[in-house]
Design a protein around this nucleic acid. Structure first.
Lengths: 200, 200
DNA sequence: CGTTCGATGTATCGGACCGATACATCGGGC
DNA sequence: GCCCGATGTATCGGTCCGATACATCGAACG
């Protein structure tokens, strides 16, 4: 899961750890995702041991990134990680492997979703529908609590449930829009201004 | 954090592990919280070693729960955990200790919030404002990404950010309602039907 | 000119927590 | 009589976090 995120970011451009972490928290952080160095560096070393990334700038057979690497590293920069060809294969493999862990955790879904542009349409749909089902289950659970046991809850607990339920309902609606868009054309969000959420 | 949750639930009524876990995921689960047995049982043993809970039914000086315990256990039930007097003190202590870890994690905030009915008003306000500040920071981060780097993101990543931003904005609004209510009267959510969120 | 300070950068350790798993018992359906 | 799903206790390996310790760089300030 962290593997996927790191490989995906390094696929776009080589980076060192610090920058990598920033991108992880900003680009993928929307859906609750913040990785600490205590996870990042061991993972980087493991990815390196498995041959999916290499330490040091691309070894001259990748001149395409010659314009970007210096921007990120200066020359004071320390360890720059670059994805290998095997790493790119591994990335695609992880992208398609959308098991239950993809839907269950916020972070897992967020990371997969962030790389949807490089995911094949069938997998995209599978992930979105799996996620929707998962959130619907959560929603039903909260509805049950609120309808069947509301009088046994104090005001704060009830308000907490109400807010959680509302968040679930919004997410389901969001997912349904995305699924509908996915089924129609491939274009997920046609350039119709920035206010399609005003429909409700 | 898990300590607080367990002590709070056992404060209401003695329970065994299985039931405890169900309550943890339903009552406190609204704000993302699901504990596994791999955390629950070691924590129970630690709480027991520290003298905050005891194994076995309440030792006869607590006849008040005589109606509830059999409902939960039958007589086939195994280990029933009961909070001690020291445990109740510890619970109050943890309730008031609202450090940054209270605002930072979803789970931490959710658990504290669920016990607001037993938290003093000053602490309630402190927690709500701390949480609001935290979510506002997240929100600003996402706004920056969307306004300053939107053209560098693909459609899916942008949509992910947009959805995350919207969720943050909703949560801030929710927190502000709660804070306003907290400042006015103590009654957090007066019985004005169930639709105060339609104001927007 | 030095020096202090915040941003950048690499790295590790203890511990919290998860996910899977193993087992055992109970009530009820077939 | 037998199996099966819900209830119930417990552990283990592994993932990830939070705190921390460093070291370097550019800029601000006296």
């Amino acid at each position: 899961m962290l593997d996927l995120a790191i490989l995906g970011l390094l696929h776009e451009s080589p980076m060192h750890g610090y920058e990598l972490r920033k991108q992880l928290t900003t680009k993928l952080g929307a859906f609750r995702f913040a990785i600490s160095y205590g996870s990042l560096y061991p993972t980087l070393r493991r990815l390196q041991a498995d041959g999916w990334i290499t330490e040091g700038a691309p070894p001259a057979d990748m001149p395409a990134s010659a314009e970007e690497v210096p921007l990120l590293t200066g020359k004071r920069g320390r360890v720059v990680y670059t994805i290998t060809a095997e790493g790119k294969e591994r990335f695609q493999e992880l992208l398609s492997a959308a098991g239950p862990e993809t839907y269950d955790s916020e972070a897992g879904f967020g990371v997969h979703f962030a790389f949807f542009a490089r995911t094949d349409p069938a997998t995209r749909l599978r992930i979105l529908e799996g996620r929707r089902r998962r959130v619907e289950e959560r929603r039903e659970g909260m509805r049950d609590v609120l309808s069947r046991a509301a009088e046994r809850l104090d005001t704060y607990t009830r308000e907490l449930q109400r807010h959680g339920l509302e968040a679930c309902e919004r997410e389901v609606r969001w997912l349904e829009e995305l699924i509908a868009n996915e089924r129609k054309g491939n274009t997920p969000q046609p350039p119709s201004a920035e206010g399609p959420e005003r429909s409700s």
